[in-house]
C-alpha cells in the first residue's frame, strides 16, 4: 500500500478515536469537569494547539489529481494534501523577501508578486508553505515519539521500581545498556535498519529517549512503594495490578504530563541538532533552522526562513507548555485542594 493511503487511514482513525475520547470524557463527570476548567484557564493556548492540529490534519489527507502545479508535470499524478494544493503553483526561482514583488538578489520580477507572506527560500519555495509542512512533521516527532516512549517507560519503570528483584535487574540491564550507547550511533543504526522516513526516525528517537523518563519513574515508584497507603493496601490484600493502577499510576500522572511536555519540546528541538548531524527528518523546522543557520550570516541577511521556522516552533511549544502546565494543576489532587 502506498504511504499516502496509510496516512489517510491513520488520520481518519485518529479523528474517529478522538471523537470517541471526547464522548467518553463527556460521560465521566470528573474528566468533563477537568476539561471544562482547562478550557476556562487556557482558551488561547488550546486554540493555538487546535490550530496546529488542524494544519497537521489538513496536511495528512491526500488524494491524486485535480491539481494545477504549473511547470511541475509530475505533481499531476502524485498524491497531494490540502496544504500542497493551496500552494501548488507558488514556486519562484530563488529568494524573495516577505510580500516582495521582485527577487531578493538581482530584482527579477516574481511569478506571484506580493503573494508570499513570508517570502521564498533559496530555491523559490514559499516559506509559509514550508513552515506549514513542518507542522505535521513536528507533531509526528513530538507526539508519536512520546506516545511510543512514555508507555514503554511507564511499563518498565513501574515494574522495576515496584517489584524490584529480578524485574528490576532486567530493566536496569536494558536501560543501562541503551543509555551507555552513544545516542547518535543508535539513531543512525536504527534509521538505517528501518529506512529513512519520518516514522522510523520517530521510533528511533523513542528508543533512545525512553530511558531518561524510565529512570525517573523507577525512582519515584521506589518512593511511592514505601508510602503508607500503598503498604496499607498491600496489607489488605489488594492485588498488585490494582495497587499499581489505583495508587502508583495516578501519583505519576503529573510526571507523565510534565515529561510529555518536556519531551515533546525537547524532541522537536533536538531534531534541529539531528538535522545538523545529518539524521534529521525531511521538511522539518529543524531542517529549516539548520539551513537558516547559514542564511543568518548572509549580508543582506535572509531572516524570514528562520523567523518562520522559529516562530512556528516557538508558538507550538509555548502553547503545548501552557496547556501542559494547566493540566498538571488540574490533575494533581494536592494543588486542587489548595487552589481557591
Amino acid at each position: 500500500m502506498e504511504a499516502w493511503v496509510i496516512s489517510n487511514i491513520v488520520t481518519s482513525l485518529l479523528l474517529v478515536s478522538s471523537v470517541l475520547v471526547v464522548l467518553a470524557v463527556r460521560r465521566s463527570r470528573m474528566w468533563s469537569e477537568a476539561m471544562g476548567s482547562l478550557w476556562k484557564r487556557r482558551p488561547i493556548a488550546i486554540g493555538v494547539v487546535a490550530f496546529y492540529l488542524a494544519i497537521g490534519i489538513l496536511d495528512s489527507i491526500y488524494w491524486v489529481g485535480g491539481i494545477n502545479a504549473g511547470e511541475d508535470v509530475v505533481s499531476a499524478h502524485e498524491a497531494k494534501s490540502v496544504i500542497d494544493r493551496l500552494f501548488a503553483d507558488s514556486r519562484e526561482r530563488s529568494y524573495s523577501a516577505p510580500l516582495a514583488d521582485v527577487e531578493f538578489y538581482g530584482s527579477a520580477p516574481l511569478e506571484n508578486p506580493g503573494w508570499h507572506l513570508m517570502g521564498t527560500d533559496l530555491i523559490g519555495r514559499d516559506v509559509v508553505y514550508l513552515a506549514m509542512k513542518g507542522v505535521r512533521v513536528a507533531l509526528l516527532i513530538g507526539g508519536l515519539t512520546s506516545l511510543i516512549a512514555i508507555p514503554l517507560s511507564l511499563l518498565f519503570g513501574i515494574s522495576a521500581g515496584y517489584f524490584g528483584g529480578r524485574v528490576d535487574d532486567v530493566v536496569f540491564f536494558v536501560m543501562s545498556t541503551l543509555a551507555s550507547m552513544p545516542t547518535l550511533l543508535l539513531l543512525i543504526a536504527l534509521i538505517m535498519a528501518m529506512g529513512r522516513s519520518t516514522v522510523s526516525i520517530c521510533i528511533a528517537l523513542a528508543v533512545t529517549s525512553w530511558v531518561g523518563f524510565c529512570r525517573l519513574v523507577r525512582g519515584e515508584t521506589l518512593k511511592l512503594r514505601e508510602q503508607d497507603y500503598v503498604q496499607a493496601a498491600r496489607a489488605l490484600g489488594v492485588s498488585e495490578l490494582q495497587i499499581i493502577l489505583r495508587h502508583i499510576l495516578p501519583n505519576l500522572a503529573h510526571l507523565v504530563i510534565i515529561t510529555f511536555v518536556l519531551t515533546f519540546s525537547g524532541l522537536v528541538l533536538s531534531e534541529a541538532v539531528l538535522a545538523w548531524l545529518g539524521v534529521g527528518v525531511d521538511g522539518s523546522w529543524g531542517q529549516m533552522i539548520d539551513q537558516a543557520r547559514s542564511e543568518l550570516s548572509r549580508d543582506p541577511v535572509v531572516w524570514w526562513n528562520i523567523a518562520a521556522a522559529g516562530l512556528s516552533l516557538f508558538g507550538l511549544l509555548l502553547a503545548v507548555n501552557m496547556v501542559g502546565d494547566a493540566i498538571r494543576d488540574i490533575l494533581d489532587p494536592r494543588t486542587l485542594r489548595e487552589s481557591p
Binding site: A272, V273, L317
Partner: peptide
C-alpha cells in the same frame, strides 16, 4: 523558561 526552551541550541 518556555521562551528559552523554544530556541534551538544552534541559534
Amino acid at each position: 523558561c518556555v521562551l528559552g526552551m523554544s530556541v534551538s541550541i544552534l541559534l
